[in-house]
Design a protein around this nucleic acid. Sequence first.
DNA 1: TTGATTGTTCGATGACAATCGAACAATTGA
DNA 2: TCAATTGTTCGATTGTCATCGAACAATCAA
Lengths: 101, 101
Amino acid sequence: MPKSLLHPDSDAIQLEQVLHALGDPVRLSIVRQLAAGDGEMTCGCCSVPVSKSTKTHHFRVLREAGVIRVRLEGTSAMISLRRESLDARFPGLLDAVLSAG
Amino acid sequence: MPKSLLHPDSDAIQLEQVLHALGDPVRLSIVRQLAAGDGEMTCGCCSVPVSKSTKTHHFRVLREAGVIRVRLEGTSAMISLRRESLDARFPGLLDAVLSAG
DNA sequence: TTGATTGTTCGATGACAATCGAACAATTGA
DNA sequence: TCAATTGTTCGATTGTCATCGAACAATCAA
């Protein structure tokens, strides 16, 4: 369904890009919802106050930054946090972000 | 010299605003230079490839986000990292950002 | 007092980013 | 096969942000 589904290698994840990706209220909310549930969730399952197409946009930004992984299954897009990648590349960063009130 | 020099209380520092502030190459560079030296540095001492006025802009963004403190001394602006505030509010965040290669 | 230094403010500009709706594509169930 | 579901793509719009130069303000040294 998507034209291409590129995920950066763990090694290639850029701090600046990650911070930029997380510095948006909609995307931060998405990441928190992913962290709250465990494992994957579908794109549609994620509740944010924007249109379908805008949601697609935000998922792409997060994916290209290396924050989430997107896997296609039928007509659904399964989303998950790239915890291991982020923890390996920027130890403590994700924890700090998620544990912030 | 400045119209107002508002710093948010530690308690009022917003994660999203901090992440947004750090998600810019010029500002991330400023923060790293501040962390490298210890204590304060003057505005002009900070080396970034932008004009004076743009530098002022970035210092304001960082200050309003609660990332840096600005103190006036003569004609100089003394800049410092708000380490304690950030560590108290978002434990581990600054360390994670600074220790990232 | 004059000039140099240091930084801020203002207004304009250009680039990028968030947003939407409409049209499309792919899968799945009836 | 048909319709429903799920998400993507496209084009347009809107708004925000980084950037600059010029003018200004404040301090300090000579």
